[in-house]
Design a binder for these strands. Structure first.
Lengths: 211, 211
DNA sequence: TAGATTGTTAATCGATTAACAATC
DNA sequence: TAGATTGTTAATCGATTAACAATC
């Protein structure tokens, strides 16, 4: 089990995990790098290299034990202890994220949502309470929340971001379609729907041009 | 204006565009590579290299004309002619995407949504009609739709994907948290929320470890 | 044992950055 | 002109892939 992992390999780990979790549970379910790669569309050497960063449970001739590999990836990604997060902006996208049960299996626990609309406040989306924005700062500080998920309109995003950081947030997950600036030391991850779309469109156009 | 562009550069183009569109409109608004880079957190050489792939409008000492640069990027990404798409799965995420006006400015036009739930059918989300799944195949074929957006639960995703492909869809944008397999020649773009989260979590854990 | 499979070191490939010439 | 800025060619860096030794 090596120490170094590339950024790209890191992003592939959840995909391995996703697939492994669909496998039938059983003490001795095993899978080879080749089989994993075939399913996910990766080369087998790449799979082995990726997995070598998180696990040393691979056995020649046999492959990887599915259960132990799942545990190793979860452990490497820190999914074994949940991180608390708050979500700001209970619009359609915000509600969709609040309702997504899957986050728990990826180590994220959204403890509450905030919205500036008084009509939304007090209501509940999939068991998560929507609170007035005024209570955000206090709750973040009190609970030492480290992750803030921004799903407000682009025009309000920077303001919300600044406020989260003042409340001690260490990492921002930004779904608003705008660039945010954060001080040194705060982690910013932009969710980038337009970038994905660009890749898809370009591939499609390319394909059409060729045919 | 070169021909080649790297995958990563391609994904940065929408970010440039996003920022440029916030600039005050004016025939002679200009911006330098350095200024663009500072705002978006990229190096100035990278910005120049990226932009050289799409534009030849940069002028020494002056920079790039904002309006013409916007046009060049839009043209390069094919945003000047809208692509029609259908969306399958009018759950919370599906509705959020249907309501997102921004797609039009990124060259995507969702013409209709489909859902297997009869209660949802006939209703309308932000002006997009939700239709019964049975009508999907026919509409895709008739309108020669090329892009399918999948927002159904993971368990139904592969089935929906196969059906879209049978109806002539050329590109799949998958938001379901599962891996899909598509035949050679069909473009698949997985939207990968767990992968982003992994990067964020890892950076956060890394930061904590260091301090 | 032979064959399948892992894990690692070295080679290749692609993307970023540095250096610098061109130009307004 | 001098200085700022673009655009390109060459060098560096990082990620992927190939080759191969280790092992069950």
């Amino acid at each position: 089990m090596a120490k170094e992992i590339s950024m790209q390999a890191l992003q592939r780990l959840p995909l391995y995990l996703q697939y492994l979790r669909t496998l039938p549970v059983g003490k001795d379910t095993t899978i080879s790098a080749k089989a994993l790669g075939t399913v996910l569309g990766f080369g087998e050497i790449q799979v082995r290299k990726d997995l070598s960063a998180v696990s040393d449970g691979g056995k020649p001739k046999i492959g990887y034990g599915a259960e132990s590999l799942i545990r190793d990836i979860e452990c490497f990604l820190g999914y074994d202890n949940l991180s608390d997060a708050v979500l700001i902006g209970a619009g359609k996208l915000g509600k969709a994220l609040l309702s997504y049960d899957g986050f728990r299996t990826y180590g994220l626990n959204i403890v509450a949502a905030f919205d500036s609309d008084p009509l939304k406040c007090g209501t509940d989306v999939s068991g998560k309470l929507i609170l007035p924005l005024e209570r955000m700062d206090n709750l973040c500080e009190r609970m030492k929340i480290e992750i803030g998920i921004i799903t407000v309109p682009a025009s309000a995003a920077q303001q919300v971001c600044d406020r989260l950081i003042r409340s001690g947030i260490k990492a921002i997950w930004n779904f608003a379609p705008t660039h945010l600036s954060v001080p040194e030391g705060v982690i910013l991850k932009n969710e980038n729907i337009a970038a994905s779309l660009a890749v898809l469109s370009k591939n499609l156009a390319e394909k059409e041009r060729r045919s």
